[in-house]
Amino acid sequence: MSLQAWVRRTRVPEPASVRREIAVVEPADLLDVEAKDDPEASPVLCCTGESAGAAAFSALWLKRIAGSGRYAAAVSVRGQGNTPAAPGGVEARAHDLVQAAIGLPRQAVLVGHGAGAAWAALAAARYPAAALVLVAPHKLPKQPPKPVGDPKVLLAVDESDAQSKEAQAITDAYGVAPLTFPGVSGDVFTGPGAEGLLDTILSWLGRRD
């Protein structure tokens, strides 16, 4: 976030505060799998553009992330899941995401899916994420703001989308090569490719480079 962007933001009204639904699974919560809790590993905070919000991640994602030893959280931004609707556009949703992130015990990885990727990209310009993961991003700003704290960025797009102009623009903006996964965007939560995609993301997060 540039200083100028911050100055502008302090001079517009802050989005209304809402009681946000946050789903959390900690490694210690998992009774059926042997998960090693890694206190060094960054927590992961997920959001999606789908209306289910945090609930979309409960079936598979949160447990699997926690299974890798990370604190796993998902947030429903305003109007999603059990979070009440409140006025505000993408900026307000990015604000919800930042507010959820500062409530986590440590510097978090931001994972955004679909339209949620746009909120995550904006949030990463206001909060120094440990890493930024954009899954099947949708409606991302043409020139996404530069993330603060220089986090590593992962872009995952489905096969049919890999050659699209949008994916290309994001690739150029962040200077990262996209990772492609089989299936369509809606499959990332339950489809056959979901586990494979998630494991790829988790191993990328764990990589030291």
């Binding site: 505060s17 930042v98 507010q99």
Partner: peptide, 14 residues
């Protein structure tokens, strides 16, 4: 609050 918080780590908005 909005004029005092650290820019990249805002205070809780409640």
């Amino acid at each position: 609050r909005s004029q005092t918080e650290i820019p990249d780590f805002p205070m809780p908005d409640d």
